[in-house]
């Protein structure tokens, strides 16, 4: 008993100060890959190297000599193969707080036209404007309403593994450790969907989990938030869509927030959960709406 007390007293404060202070990941950390569109020549090297087709280079069928380079952070597994294929135009940053409420915000595009020398050049004039301004507002509003109804009290989360590799679970479990201590935000993991305000779903939703996920969703009282955690849950990740996989959570139940990563590190998870609760201080649905 004395030993335990001693341990408790001398242990010190382990908890980190997120989100007041967002610690910078160490050098060599593989965060958000950024394409410098002005240096990119739409050559396809990165797309060929990407294991999940998060980067694609499409040649326009209508207009000859036009190409689109597209990067989808939802599908990205942060392996760094694109950077290795094209160190000139792509580099991995340390940015890791990538959660969004609107899936289309996970996509960036560059448009290219072929010059007389046969080399593709970034065309300043975007061939297409963002087509999703309205729905974002709608989604933002709907989410805010839900959040307002939910958070007179603390947030109860039910975690649903819909066929993940367990990597996402390693990180979600870490939220309960003394360092991240998610309980300080009034967030608790609960044992039944009936007590939950939020479903935190991982995995590509396997065929064998599809029904169980739907049932869990139905058993969760309205209003409820659904957060898709990790590349698998967003769009199938490395597993994609197949006889065994539905290719993402929103193919089965509606999703409010998407947290990219494979897996997202604990602070990225906190960011996504706080974003869903509209409690993230710097940005969030309040700003997009």
């Amino acid at each position: 008993m004395l030993r335990i007390l001693k341990q408790a007293l001398t242990g010190g404060v382990a908890t980190n100060s997120y989100p007041r202070v967002v610690g910078e990941p160490p050098d060599g950390f593989r965060g958000k890959p950024v394409i410098d569109f002005t240096r990119c020549t739409a050559c396809d090297a990165c797309a060929g190297a990407c294991p999940t087709s998060a980067i694609t280079v499409q040649t326009s069928a209508q207009k000859r000599g036009e190409r689109t380079v597209e990067m989808n952070y939802g599908d990205c597994i942060f392996c760094g193969e694109c950077e290795a294929a094209c160190p000139d135009a792509i580099h991995l940053t340390k940015e890791f707080q990538l959660a969004v409420t609107d899936k289309s915000e996970l996509v960036t595009r560059g448009f290219y036209t072929r010059g007389s020398d046969g080399v593709y050049q970034y065309s300043e004039v975007p061939a297409q404007t963002r087509s999703h301004t309205e729905p974002v507002e709608e989604i933002g509003k709907a989410l805010k309403k839900k959040v307002r109804t939910l958070f007179g009290r603390s947030l109860h989360i039910r975690e649903v593994d819909a066929g993940s590799c367990n990597g996402c679970e390693v990180e979600i479990t870490a939220l309960n450790n003394p360092v991240y201590d998610i309980q300080r935000f009034g967030v608790r993991f609960v044992a039944s969907p009936r007590h939950a305000d939020m479903l935190l779903v991982t995995g590509p939703v396997t065929r064998n989990m599809e029904i169980a996920l739907k049932q869990t969703y139905d058993a969760t009282p309205d209003p409820k938030l659904v957060v898709a955690v990790g590349a698998c849950a967003i769009g199938g990740g490395v597993f994609g869509k197949s006889y065994a996989s539905c290719g993402g959570v929103d193919a089965v139940v509606p999703v409010d927030v998407y947290i990219p990563g494979c897996p997202p590190r604990p602070e990225a998870l906190l960011h996504g959960i706080l974003l869903a609760m509209d409690r993230y201080p710097h940005q969030g649905p309040a700003h997009t709406a």
Binding site: P51, F239, S245
Partner: peptide, 23 residues
């Protein structure tokens, strides 16, 4: 078991070994 079956062995067929490392 097999709720987490993702067809991993199947989808690897035809893939380059370098890509399978990520799987």
């Amino acid at each position: 078991l097999f709720y987490a079956h993702k067809g991993t062995e199947k989808i690897a067929e035809g893939m380059s070994p370098q890509r399978v490392v990520f799987l």
